[in-house]
Amino acid sequence: MTTKTEKVEASTKIRPRIGRWEVDDHNEVALLGTRCAACGEVAFPEHQICVNCGSESTEVVRIKGPATLRNYTIVHQLPPGYERPWVVGYGEFDGQLSVLAPIVAASRDELHEGLSLSLCVGVTKVDDDGEEMYSYQFTPTKA
């Protein structure tokens, strides 16, 4: 099992704290979130203090797809380093939480509310110094 964040943590650059993820031996991606022991709220990225009730008793949980596309936008104006146009949207995991992520390898025609999305990992941005920056992404679930 590898986590992309290990590499990130070794760098001295200030990184966007987009949250951690894991890729298993079958190439399945899981987001690392937290579940509150007091109120049950699931949060991503991880929060040591529950975002909902303020309890300090949280534990790491693995959030796996598929997610359901709720809403999205096709973004045309972006800072340097992104492919254009670039699609971002909210995927909802089982009525528990929604996560914002880029949506890749999706045609304009198939983007609609209710679309099943799988998690994947890919290059989201090429940084000013040419470094490829990875993140979790959504892609339409293959049948």
């Binding site: 966007p16 987009i18 949250g19 809403n71 973004v75 993140s135």
Partner: peptide
Amino acid sequence: PGEYESFLGKTLPAKYAL
């Protein structure tokens, strides 16, 4: 710098577009 969703491509106009 801490606004991580914008790294994912959610610019300010994209926030409102969503």
